[in-house]
Design a protein around this nucleic acid. Sequence first.
DNA 1: CTTATAAATGTTATATTATTACATAGTGTT
DNA 2: AACACTATGTAATAATATAACATTTATAAG
Lengths: 135, 135
Amino acid sequence: MGISKIDKMHSLSKNQQIIFDLIDKSSEPLKAYTILFNVQKKGIKAPLQVYRALDKLVEIGKIHKIESRNAFIACHNSSCQVAKATAFSICEICEKVTEISSAGLSKYLANFKDKDGMKYSKYNLEFFGLCKKCR
Amino acid sequence: MGISKIDKMHSLSKNQQIIFDLIDKSSEPLKAYTILFNVQKKGIKAPLQVYRALDKLVEIGKIHKIESRNAFIACHNSSCQVAKATAFSICEICEKVTEISSAGLSKYLANFKDKDGMKYSKYNLEFFGLCKKCR
DNA sequence: CTTATAAATGTTATATTATTACATAGTGTT
DNA sequence: AACACTATGTAATAATATAACATTTATAAG
């Protein structure tokens, strides 16, 4: 059988895998230097090693950056493997972040045209409010 | 006559006014330290003075932060005086940023409910693509 | 298999963005 | 005047991110 092309494209290097695993098993968004602390025992010693892996993981859609928090979460939405259409809800008290997957929302935004009739290739949407627990 | 309550609420202090004026007359989003350089001749010497003014200006909706760029632009949308519903288009080549004011979009997002039926009090949306000139 | 190329890594230094802590001054209200 | 609130000034430092350069590993083509 072997590795199909599509799997290969998304196969991760050593550092990428270490950092992805950490983010993926985290219940909250992780910041770059938090990640750095947690992977130092695995031999990743410098910020740049972390940022490079993060950049790549974002590029291939395995993780997303929460821009308002400078933090990263794993993608849990099979439809955004290419990081070009992202939406999140953020609790302003406990800082819980959830990726929103709404077919209606993504369709609406992907097709949105501005006044000049211009469409966009990418978007990021962050909603803020209070999560269930904090209400 | 005098100053009405609503005007007063939005009246700016000295530093806030200096910094708002700079951002307002800029054709592009300004970063905090760019602002700092440009207001040093007016006596604002420290980063914190800039950040405090920026915080306040964002809070009262006179400016918005472009989260993906860590930069600030003046609000040109009379409907978002309280910074709680913002949408921008960002050119990935020339970095031109435009505030989007679309009644349809803001209505859609303000009324958006997630899977749990939860509504949000605030959102920020950033679209990416190529502007007219760069296409 | 070897050569060429691209992708990833390692390392040091530094740039950029933002906040903490503490002291002082102004503004509006009662 | 006394009070509360907002804004300012200043120094130090924390947190986030990139530049520059050397080396190694993976991939694909000949």
